[in-house]
């Protein structure tokens, strides 16, 4: 099982660029297709994951990490294990972004949007592969530090638990910023039956208050 970038959801990239419906500006679709090809050629996505049995009191077997807040325990209720992962587009994206900004800021804006869509694709592929490997067990939606009441301040411990710096090259600043920027950390529950309730959407989102999409009446998932 390896981290893979297979393509972009073009609508997602358009949304990141500010598309709110209506006619597309000329070139927008071609710009995204070009960046998609460039990203697939240039970046080397990486991922690290660990699977932990859940202890009766909701802890992760063998490690001291314990998620704060109520949302993660609710997500993991009825699960027998949890998979924690960190995925990234790698420093190749950072280098490409710096080089592109020096050449064309317009191009860099498209690339940035496509990079956001690309790391989502990497996460989707990884979660799909994990689901296939766990079958017939089922996986819940993925849930990241910063979602709901799962605090971003736990990012440091989460990454340390995965040894993310050494294994996939994700560095955290004091303020919790991940470098490379296009990186995602998340956990998913492993359970015998399909989850009844999805842990996605605005109610769980850490950006509920300031989301520019929601202000325009658009949701992302």
């Amino acid at each position: 099982m390896q981290a893979r970038l297979t393509g972009l959801n073009h609508n997602e990239a358009l949304a990141y660029l500010g598309y709110r419906g209506g006619a597309l500006p000329p070139d927008a679709a071609a710009d995204i297709a070009r960046c998609e090809a460039l990203l697939i050629k240039t970046v080397r996505p990486r991922a690290v994951w660990r699977r932990f049995a859940l202890t009766p009191d909701g802890g992760f077997e063998g490690v001291s990490f314990r998620p704060e807040g109520g949302d993660v325990p609710r997500l993991l209720f009825g699960c027998e294990a949890v998979i924690c992962f960190a995925a990234t587009l790698g420093m190749e994206f950072e280098a490409l972004m710096r080089r592109t900004q020096a050449r064309s800021m317009a191009e860099a804006v498209v690339l940035d949007a496509c990079g956001s869509a690309a790391i989502e694709n990497v996460c989707d592929n990884l979660c799909g592969d994990l689901a296939a490997a766990e079958a017939p067990l089922c996986l819940t939606d993925r849930f990241s530090p910063g979602y709901g009441d799962f605090p971003l301040t736990q990012q440091h411990d989460f990454c340390a638990m995965l040894d993310a710096q050494r294994r996939v090259g994700i560095t955290l600043s004091d303020s919790g910023l991940m470098t490379p920027q296009k990186s995602v950390t998340a956990l998913l529950g492993v359970r015998r039956t399909p989850p009844e309730k999805r842990a996605r959407g605005c109610a769980y989102c850490g950006r509920f208050a300031d989301c520019t999409y929601r202000k325009d009446g658009i949701t992302c998932g």
């Binding site: 500010g18 598309y19 209506g22 070139d27 927008a28 710009d31 317009a106 191009e107 804006v109």
Partner: peptide
């Protein structure tokens, strides 16, 4: 009005 995106705005400004 959403008829242009940021890249087009930047190109126009350029």
């Amino acid at each position: 009005r959403g008829e242009l995106f940021l890249p087009q705005l930047i190109n126009a400004a350029n």
